[in-house]
Amino acid sequence: MTQLFLEQALNGLQFGLMLFLLAAGLTLVFGIMDCINLAHGSLYMVGAYFVAAAAQAADSFWLGLGAGVAGTALLGLLLELSLFRQLYRRDHLAQVLATFALILIANESVRLIWGPAPLLLNPPESLAGPVEIAGFFYPAYRLVIIACGLVVAGLLYLLVAKSRIGMWVRAGAANREMTEALGINVRALFTAVFVFGAGLCALAGGLLGPLLAVQVGMGESVLILAFVVIIIGGIGSIRGALVGALIVGTVDTLGRALLPTLLRATLPADAAATLGPALASILIYLLMAGILFFKPQGLFPARA
């Protein structure tokens, strides 16, 4: 039982950390620039495709990951300069429409370039098998993902909480006009944050690629989850994104693992079999609605 719990906790942690990579960029773009970016999930998808294509070309996963992240960051730069700059000043509706349009364009372009079938991306040979920890086997590659996630989360924390740039970013999230008035080049800051967010997307897409599947539409389901995370955490707060991501990752994993068993113990088998997966899949949305009901600004509101 403790083994099962430990394994599920690791699974939750792994899922949560990847959600954090996605949510970090989204919450900053959202918080500082007040811009809804529905196409954030498309950057994750395009990132995964870039990584997969580069890994195939270079015949090395790690080289592919580096190239894919760089390529996606570059794409993010182009997007920011050409489109998003004009969107910051517009209302949420225009942002929703424009970024919805980007989703359509991204999905179809990927289908046009790489075809409708999912792309294959394999983990490095040495990490394909399981390793033994605390008496049970756990996939080595998932441990690597956890490690990567922890390192990036740590670096991000240092960057945002301790560095000068991070201070500007936090200031921008809390009060944009004031930050501008203090003479900080907010425009360049916006660009940098957007590009950074795009890179994190590609990192998550590339790391998850071998585990899941690199396919058209992979961005949409994850986008919704990332939004749930930043709403729970509070828009614009990196700390909120981390806490929110870990909560969502853990609740989703544990819900899927424990709910069916719990229900089976209390309900007739038939009802439990139907209700279990249904409840498990709406658990995080219930959680979000509940949190918003009591704390309409999320757990860690960036604007006091």
Partner: peptide, 21 residues
């Protein structure tokens, strides 16, 4: 023992832990 997953699910970590148990 029957385990039902979400249709279109891609990550089976939680289910694999159940199977192991």
């Amino acid at each position: 023992e029957e385990i039902y997953t979400k249709l279109g699910q891609l990550d089976y970590a939680a289910e694999l832990a159940q199977i192991r148990a």
